[in-house]
Design a protein around this nucleic acid. Structure first.
Lengths: 259, 259
DNA sequence: CGGCTCGTTGATCAACCTCAATCAGTGTGG
DNA sequence: CCACACTGATTGAGGTTGATCAACGAGCCG
């Protein structure tokens, strides 16, 4: 976790416009559009449903399977574990997430999906996905958008882990999770949200230890920025938290959710 | 960058099978299949081509555009820069990579694409992608696979940055890049490959400073594992390097490339 | 030759890890 | 109802990885 390694390429590339200027609230103030309805795909194309108890696995790294999954309810984590037990959480899957796509049924999963809360998923045969793509439909667009959303989420996580301090990373992480939950619920709320993650989950997502997450959260709490306790999260000052995260408020401002 | 924070969930979840056992060379020894031919899409659907000089940008974070791009030649980096200049490299784009997909043309890019070497890209209108997906074709599958490959690459990077030490991360990074280049070239070779990245690029990809990358590479060199110099990379002992990376050799063993 | 980028090496420092103990909350069986 | 176990959160003390600051060398180019 870096403190402030400022790469010299900035000075070295005078042609590049200033990043800050470039980023400043893009002219095209496009409302964030929602995905096409992935739940409709789950309804229409699932071969079945599956319940996953909290703490147990939907699928594991190295397994092969003919299916992919769409989360209908609950939270899951996608993670990978190194030989000596270190764990990296790659993503959190909330309702509406599509999980476990692979090019072919005989390519094994490259990560494990484990339920954090009790969860329910729709099971969709990979062959069905191929059909949908090959024959064409607006499903294809929805599926691609789901994949792209996951990619952008991974990029956010990578930036948190690679180039933000623990305090910045945790602040940014809370904003991101808050945004995801509120989008899902289509609530813009300043209210508290359900937040079933332990400090160990947060640490394993951000490349930190649970102990250090604890200290960091305590500090953010003491500064009056957030409330995190007993499975709930409330962001008290979104602007201040975005400042701490080294991010722009508008990235997390879903007033203009729409669509 | 962690040393060995071993999350307690291992002990706590006796139901979960041992990760090592689970990972051990998957039964389905499926040959890694190549993408559908993304170059064919570039040929058939591009509205034009564009040359990008080394060090200049193909597009920048915050810009909007009607296009996506497919790399025909050269290397690019995808990165994001924080307000104070810290940079995170999100991915490297080699020939065959698809860049810049967004759900709609008015959604701005969320990262910058900059050429490392001189590069040539095919320009494809987003509307064309929508058509392909809506009308259906095997292109749809190819595009989804490209997105999924990018996602898995991001997951690899996330694991390197979050849970591997500098030495492990650099070792794993070199193996990953080596695999990508060799897949692209369809060469299985034990030979040296073109490797136009600076130590600062490696650092910005792995959340390290260029100085520490230098020390780490020196150590790997001194141990007879790799040669990295003057724009070329040669892995001298893939097995040993995979051991250093805390990874399995077969992940990087492309003897069975095929398809 | 001067200027520039990139790589290398040394000395010091701090962010975050490790180990360890304690506590609160929850569930469980007697 | 209570002792007990267990998970998750908290706090302290000390250690280590990797950052920072700085100087210098090698290669390249106009």
């Amino acid at each position: 976790m870096a403190t402030a390694q400022i790469s010299s390429h900035i000075r070295n590339n005078p042609a590049a416009p200033s990043n800050v200027v470039r980023l400043g609230r893009p002219a095209s103030q496009a409302p964030a559009r929602r995905n096409g309805d992935i739940f409709a795909i789950a309804r229409e194309h699932a071969s079945g449903r599956r319940l996953v108890a909290a703490g147990s696995e939907l699928f594991a790294e190295g397994e092969a399977s003919d299916n992919i999954y769409i989360v209908l309810d609950g939270w899951l984590i996608l993670h990978r574990i190194l030989a000596d037990g270190r764990r990296q959480i790659l993503d959190f899957a909330l309702p509406g997430a599509a999980l476990g796509y692979r090019a072919h049924a005989d390519v094994p999963f490259s990560f494990t999906a484990e339920a954090v809360t009790g969860a329910e998923v729709a099971v969709i045969p990979l062959s069905r996905i191929s059909q949908l793509l090959y024959r064409g439909s607006d499903c294809a667009m929805t599926i691609l958008e789901a994949a792209n959303d996951a990619l952008l989420g991974a990029f956010d996580a990578l930036t948190d882990v690679g180039r933000r301090s623990a305090r910045e990373a945790v602040a940014h992480f809370l904003l991101r999770m808050n945004r995801r939950v509120q989008r899902m619920a289509k609530s813009d709320g300043g209210g508290s949200i359900r937040f079933p993650l332990t400090q160990e989950h947060i640490g394993d997502a951000l490349g930190l230890t649970a102990v250090h997450v604890c200290r960091t959260l305590s500090a953010l709490r003491a500064d009056g920025l957030v409330e995190v306790a007993r499975g709930r999260l409330r962001i008290l000052d979104k602007q201040a938290l975005a400042d701490e995260a080294g991010a722009f408020l508008f990235e997390f401002d879903d007033a203009r959710l729409a669509s």
